[in-house]
């Protein structure tokens, strides 16, 4: 089946099984390896991408379902000013340890901040509760998002 969508700002068209996982299509067809697989069952969030600005687990999303949509991965998002603020804040706060979950957390942070530019602590914790991290204990990621929200005022 022919599927077309906007991937990181570019129109793409591919002929593939619509039931293929979006994760596999992103990694295998487009070499977007910033999208990680940690559990394959929509629990850990390492594969998070934005589909029409909503945070989604690409490991449980059939590629057919994004036909006609906008898909943003870390590789597209990292070109933005917002990303640079988040990256700076994550680095400063110690939010990155092994880094395997980091792209997913950054996408979740973007999804949150685009809805609420100055979220309180509870909203931050809820917004990233779909992403698992075993290294940091989360507090440093929450701090990173707080710093980004402060320093990126006006961007979101």
């Amino acid at each position: 089946m022919k599927i077309s969508f906007v991937l990181n700002g570019r129109d793409v068209l591919l002929d593939t099984d619509p039931l293929r996982r979006l994760l596999d299509v992103l990694r295998d067809e487009f070499n977007l390896t910033g999208v990680k697989e940690g559990c394959g069952e929509g629990e850990c969030g390492a594969c998070s991408v934005l589909v029409n600005d909503k945070i989604m687990y690409s490991c449980i999303l059939p590629v057919g379902s994004v036909d006609g949509s906008r898909v943003l991965t870390i590789e597209g998002y990292r070109e933005t000013e917002r990303y640079k603020v988040l990256q700076e804040a994550f680095t400063e706060a110690g939010s990155v340890q092994c880094g395997f979950c980091t792209p997913g957390f950054i996408m979740a942070a973007e999804a949150l901040l685009s809805e609420d530019a100055s979220p309180d602590e509870k909203s931050i914790r809820e917004a990233i509760s779909g992403n698992l991290c075993r290294c940091t204990g989360y507090s440093m990621i929450v701090d990173g998002i707080k710093i980004a929200s402060r320093k990126g005022r006006g961007l979101w």
């Binding site: 977007l32 390896t33 910033g34 999208v35 990680k36 697989e37 991965t73 870390i74 590789e75 990292r78 988040l86 990256q87 994550f90 680095t91 400063e92 110690g94 990155v96 340890q97 092994c98 880094g99 395997f100 980091t102 792209p103 950054i106």
Partner: peptide, 18 residues
């Protein structure tokens, strides 16, 4: 700053499956 923080955050640094 952790010397690999930037490359990890961008998703550019490679893990085995990458």
């Amino acid at each position: 700053r952790k010397i690999d923080a930037l490359s990890l955050a961008t998703g550019a640094d490679k893990f085995t499956d990458d």
